[in-house]
Nucleic acid binder design. Sequence first.
DNA 1: AATCATCCCTGAACGC
DNA 2: TGCGTTCAGGGATGAT
Length: 295
Amino acid sequence: MPWTAVFCPALAYARAMPELPEVETTRRKIEPLLRGKVIERLAHDAPHKYPNTHLAHGKRVRALTRRGKYLLLHLAAADAAETQPHDLELIVHLGMTGGFRLEEGPHTRVTFELEGGERLYFNDPRRFGKVAAVSPGEYASMPTLAAMGPEPLSDDFTEAEFVQAAAGCGAVKVWLLSQKPVSGVGNIYADESLWLSKIHPAQTKLTADEASRLYHAVREVMHEAVERGGSSLGNGVGNYRQHDGEGGGYQTRHHAYGKTGQPCERCGTPIEKIVLGQRGTHFCPACQQVRKADS
DNA sequence: AATCATCCCTGAACGC
DNA sequence: TGCGTTCAGGGATGAT
């Protein structure tokens, strides 16, 4: 690709899609480019796909936050006092292939035209990403965001509540992907967390011990991934290409996801792939067995 | 109300 | 080699 990538998970990692760690890394990368800047215009030709973005015109970016896999740009009038709260939020979801770039490309979907002529391009080949302006906290148009569970690395994510909720869950992987028990877990990290905690992805009604193991696995997997994403922040914008190569030190090291047929790193049994909740699901049939139904 | 299938998209991988 | 087919999936939506 001739143009510079600010961040595009799909390019940075051959098989990775943007989950919480990738979104957090994106947030950190674009924060210095956007914070404090006035958005003169958000240019695109898909008003239905990117609704109400015109409301952001002329507003200043106060802060960039993240909730699960959603990026939230806090916007306020350009001349508003610092102490005044933001009055608009621009929601960005990277979908499967969304990412920001410094140069326009064939898959540029939304152009952020900033004061002083600066540009930031939202790139999204498969168009699963979202950009939308809403009133602060009004997420009725985005039910998943509205019902978003606690951040996995925050104190709001408590073991006690997770264990209690898991006791009544359906297929545990589907439950994890719902974003309700915890936010930001996608297909890859769900498989990895379940492998780490030795729980079958189709297991229902987790015991306290299982739920506890899963709780700590989710935190560990997410923490590690955020750290790894963060490890390249010092390289400067546009250096993600170095991650493409085979020998990249930051390459995601999965244990289950995408390892179909390869020996489990714990026991040597070939990893199996099934479909669960319409998602490819990888697990070790020996380490991760469905618990015999009790009661 | 909760669960499930369908749809949106297009590049990459696959198969003949 | 080349072309047609299949696959990947987050989340909204409609259906059950």
